[in-house]
Amino acid sequence: MTLSILVFASLREQLGRGQISLAIDLPCDVATLKQGLAKQYPVIATAERNGALLVAVNQQMAGDEAMVAVGDEVALFPPVTGG
């Protein structure tokens, strides 16, 4: 199925849009999701290689083992720099 993913900040600018999509079987874990995204989007592959890729699932920071299911809100972004 096709999963829509929100992207923010420098990733959003590099990708040229605030939302991207990926064909993937769900449920899957975040590590698998990142592998799929890295194959399709070179910018994401670079961010992941540089340790500069964070994932949130349902508005919570998610590690590689976290699961993504149908209907979840998934977001990708670089390390945060607020405050």
């Binding site: 500069a52 945060v80 720099t81 607020g82």
Partner: peptide
Amino acid sequence: LMDKLKTQAPFWKKETTKDGDRWLDA
């Protein structure tokens, strides 16, 4: 609260300088 906000809350800063805009690195 400040230490955690800096690394957990989803905010991103982009600065404008005379050489152009730049996203700040964590």
